[in-house]
Amino acid sequence: MGKTASNFDRLVKQTRIKNILAKTFIYLFLSAWAMTTIYALFWVVNNSFKDKTVILSDSFSLAVNPIPDNYITAFNKMNIGRAYLNSFIISGCTVIFVMILAGLAAYAMTRYNFRLKNTLYMVFAGSILFPAFSTIVPIFKMVLDMKLVSNPLGVIIPQTASYLSFAIIVLMGFMSNLPLELEEAAFMEGCNVFNIFARIILPLSKPAFATVAIFTFCWSYNDLFVQMVILRKRDTYPICTLLNEISSQFGTDFGLMASAVTIVVFPVLIVYLFLQNNIVKGLTAGAIKG
């Protein structure tokens, strides 16, 4: 007994010395990687407050006398407020649709036993492999026939379809870990499955839904490809498409470009900082093990 204990103490002491060295190295490495993210962003924001000629000659100096000119130009040249609104309409609706449809489907897939269950699982899992390229042209034609070109719905529905499978699988992973007892108790008290879904499953699965919401939102907000093809009127452009256009027209004006990047990144940064804890919670809870 005593032998084991002293052996243990010695080991702890040894590890402590090694630990100090290791910790230093670890913090150095982590900070170095963190710098690539922080400095890149800082460089852009810093330069967005400088005149374009200053950027070309010296992009490192701190913008001591920040000038708002680039932002004024950006807001004058483009209807950025409108683009934000469009982005939030599109991504917001996509998130809601995905959560509703995926929530219902995942619940059914984890709780019911039926003959086609495995086949259906393959249908969901398989479609994750389809890249947007392989469906875009027929989708464009369908959206055309439905007269939804340049209509937010023309983007929302295809986006919902392409993020749905991912959402179902993440939610399935989470829901399958939820204990059945609560549901049984509720059933005894006379709840039907719809009540159970709304009163028990939904509240319990909040972290998983948050994960799905964040990923869906980011993918939808940042999806240049589908938006570029379907949305063809300038007043329907979301922020990403608008940014792409700014770059093709004013690519030589580094100051304007820097301010445009800042404008696009800012809202996601805010959303992310507020919701980031949920990402980890949702993934921890089930997505991975499932």
Binding site: L101, L104, V123, T135, A161, S162, L164
Partner: peptide, 23 residues
């Protein structure tokens, strides 16, 4: 098994029309 349809149909419709058919 009846509620099963209500749970699965919307997702499957969207998936088949806007992902599998175009594919």
């Amino acid at each position: 098994k009846k509620p099963l349809f209500i749970f699965l149909t919307p997702a499957l419709i969207v998936l088949f029309i806007f992902l599998y058919y175009p594919f």
